[in-house]
């Protein structure tokens, strides 16, 4: 048996990273008392929701060998769409469906352009980043879209801030993560996603309809980004076309920290979720330490590099 210990280490890598980061903030006197409390973790979980749901779609895309840079713009666009619909009197369920579908539409267009025009995902989604952001501002007339009240508002908070209950968003993110993980691992669709990312030529050779598969992957991921937009709307309680700038980088970082490979074929939902948590814990901890935001940005940047470097060391030793 080839060193079981290193296999375990490889599987647990991101998880150990999370423990290290948590331990880091549990020691200093400034944060010791409040950091390791249930309420703080409730806050961290709530803050993770948007990145985590984005990371679900992004994991699918990255595992399939692609990338999507338009996540932040998609989230802004869909949240504006949601706000406008609610403003016009749509009920929460209908607005919700429309927001998710709007995200799916953008993903569908991305996928169709990538597969149909045979262009690299980087270029297409870089274009969509601009198109979706611009459209959001156009729809919103470059202003925030305010509405009176909606059931959606309650999804990212609990009625009683001191209650133990987690807000709905956390449960939604968690259940979506479980379902996506199972789908990626145990369905024909999921294995085809891995096949496509691992070796597109093999996938084609083995009769996998690669063009159609790509369109589906980006469309489904777009739906996830729509769900993220929904929670963005719920958090802000208004549609803001300038929100979530650069969110795609957080989402990609979460997936990469979680052990996925930008070359495709490698990645897990569990890893990506832990990656998203690591970033949320870093942000939360830095705030409590009173570190300025630029310092947080530097730290998160370094964590990405270290995580990928450690990952490469690990893989280098295996071969």
């Amino acid at each position: 048996m080839k060193s079981t210990a290193s296999t375990v280490l490889a599987k647990a890598g991101p998880f150990l990273g999370l423990l290290v980061v948590i331990a880091l903030f549990s020691i200093p006197g400034e944060t010791r008392e409040f950091f390791l409390t249930y309420y703080n973790f409730k806050t961290i979980f709530t803050q993770t929701v948007i990145v985590a749901i984005g990371a679900l779609g992004m994991t699918m895309i990255i595992v399939s060998g692609g990338i999507d840079l338009s996540v932040g713009s998609t989230v802004a666009f869909t949240s504006v769409v949601g706000a406008l619909l609610i403003e016009r009197g749509w009920g929460a369920p209908a607005a919700m469906a429309a927001v998710v579908l709007a995200g799916g539409m953008i993903g569908l267009l991305n996928g169709a352009a990538i597969a149909g025009l045979r262009m690299t995902p980087f270029i297409i989604t870089l274009g969509t980043l601009g198109v979706a952001r611009g459209s959001a501002k156009w729809l919103a007339d470059s202003q925030t879209v305010n509405y009176d009240d909606s059931a959606i508002n309650a999804w990212m908070t609990t009625s009683d801030p001191f209650s133990y209950a987690l807000p709905a968003g956390v449960w939604v993110a968690l259940s979506l993560a479980v379902v996506t993980s199972l789908v990626l691992r145990h369905t024909v669709f999921g294995r085809h996603v891995f096949a496509l990312g691992s070796n597109e030529a093999t996938a084609r050779l083995c009769g996998i309809p690669t063009t159609r598969l790509k369109v589906i992957i980006y469309a489904v991921a777009g739906c996830f980004f729509g769900v993220a937009g929904l929670f963005q709307l719920s958090r802000l309680r208004q549609g803001d076309p300038t929100v979530a700038v650069g969110l795609e980088l957080d989402v990609i970082a979460a997936v990469i920290i979680g052990g996925a490979s930008l070359n495709g074929g490698v990645g897990t939902i569990l890893g990506s979720m832990i990656g998203a948590l690591i970033m949320a814990v870093l942000r939360n901890g830095s705030q409590q330490m009173g570190w300025p935001t630029y310092f947080q940005e530097i730290i998160i940047g370094l964590v990405i590099i270290v995580a990928v470097f450690v990952d490469r060391l690990r893989q280098g030793r295996q071969t």
């Binding site: 096949a195 691992s198 030529a201 093999t202 996938a203 050779l205 490698v266």
Partner: peptide, 12 residues
Amino acid sequence: EEGLMLSQSLAD
């Protein structure tokens, strides 16, 4: 380059 997915399992 075409025959196998080197980063996937033998079973797959």
